[in-house]
Design a protein around this nucleic acid. Structure first.
Lengths: 251, 251
DNA sequence: ACAATACACGCACAAAAACGCAAAGTCAAC
DNA sequence: GTTGACTTTGCGTTTTTGTGCGTGTATTGT
């Protein structure tokens, strides 16, 4: 059986069954488990399914996708979020990006925090609704469905008319020379507007994001005032950022 | 059973039941209590639920409130939603209010509907993200936390600049002489702006809303083009609305 | 205060996955 | 047909992950 043929069979079975078990697939297709695992890895890499220990699950619907990302929120992200919360004080105006790490931050805010929070993520806005003393301002725009946040000219303009104390940015790529990068072009403009509107800009970067770069340039590292990352990151990896005048926090 | 699959099930059960008991889960899922506890711990760490002694609860009071309201979403509301969906055609621009009835409408949209939907409810926006051919436009503003939708001058202005084909309005009070009424003052202005921006205005009124009035006046009944309500409503109650030139649909 | 239950922690075991390597197969050009 | 570069596959080994169990510690209700 050809590799491609086998892989499309795998996807078909996934559609039918709703889940895949690696060992079952091995006997069903008459190939070794190794081959099945390789196939699953490739398909996961291509984004057509979600690999899990023991097999795979569909990745189709946005809801599933997002819920899965939220659930996989690693211990690292949780630690980053806990450390980031310490930067917040009462009576500030805070801009919040979307993303699972930022959501973790929201969930760890002190219950009686008094603040004004501006966000373009409907998900974050709903999470913030629990805090009775936080005034939440939602920035509208065109909804970018994969990340569940708004983008577009209106969004950029709305952020431009704000003067915030603090801005928390989810990070995809953070490289000392290349700068902050992001995989989505539309969002890059929004991110720039958010950063420009705040006195202090905090990057939430779990360990694997450091030293990497993504497709589109957002801003140089020197535009940041803080980077919050994991305790496990070695000092020599952090030094280049410190040299650019950025404070590093770990948690 | 795969770990992620099991955790999804747990979250689903939580959504349905509103609470989780660890020991019950253990037998329901056929795994040891230890595994259940580990799952609950992980989900709590990720912030998707709130761990308590003996089991777990939904994480946020807001979402509980909302979920409760959704759950009690009577057969009536479901019927109203089903009937309302029939008014929608491809390639329209549709304004959606917030509220549980409207959410029911969203959940019943045809999966391949092509449309542009404008809403000021983050909740509705997220629900719409599942539909690949719907362009979702979120209207920003100050978040009104009890109803999870945005209000304020910015919101009103944003709606004013839109020309929609259709507008679905959740209803609190609908009286032939008093008109459409609503319990919240801020939202009244937004509702007016939404209605003014659409050619056709559809009121989603479950049976108990007919003939009642709430605190603040929104618009006269004659501003509506359609009322969707339940089949159980007697004809003599509907007649006054018909006489005002409004089409009545039941489902 | 006390019993019952629920929980966390460490350990052991089994299953699954990743890794490197060599054999088998594929393809194209000569 | 043959050769050589490349891909695909299977196997042994090591590493990681998930699960259950025993023990000791919290928490709860009476």
């Amino acid at each position: 059986m050809l590799k491609q043929e086998r892989q499309s069979r795998i996807l078909e079975i996934l559609r039918m069954e709703g889940k895949l078990v690696a060992t079952d697939l091995s006997v069903a297709l008459g190939v070794s488990e190794d081959t099945v695992r390789r196939d699953l890895r490739e398909l996961a890499e291509a984004g057509t399914l979600q690999r899990v220990h023991g097999g795979a699950l569909p990745r189709s619907s946005v809801e599933v996708d997002y819920a899965a990302r939220e659930r996989q929120a690693s211990a690292g992200k949780a630690a980053v979020a806990r450390a980031a919360v310490k930067l917040i004080e009462d009576d500030q105006v805070i801009i919040l990006d979307g993303g699972s790490t930022v959501l973790q931050v929201v969930r760890r805010l002190p219950a009686d925090l008094r603040a004004t929070v501006v966000t373009h993520s409907p998900r974050i806005a709903i999470a913030l609704a629990e805090y009775p003393r936080i005034e939440v301002i939602v920035i509208g725009g065109i909804l970018y469905k994969t990340d569940l946040l708004t983008v577009g000219a209106g969004t950029v303009q709305a952020f431009s008319s704000i003067n915030a104390d603090l801005c928390f940015q989810g990070i995809w790529g953070l490289h000392p020379e290349v700068g902050i990068t992001y995989p989505n072009f539309e969002e890059v403009h929004v991110k720039r507007a958010m950063m420009k509107s705040a006195d202090q800009v905090v990057a939430l970067a779990s360990a694997e994001k450091l030293g990497t770069a993504s497709s589109f340039f957002v801003a140089p590292v020197s535009d940041l005032t803080h980077i919050v990352t994991e305790r496990t990151v070695p000092e020599e990896m952090l030094k280049p950022y410190r040299d650019l005048g950025v404070s590093i926090l770990t948690g």
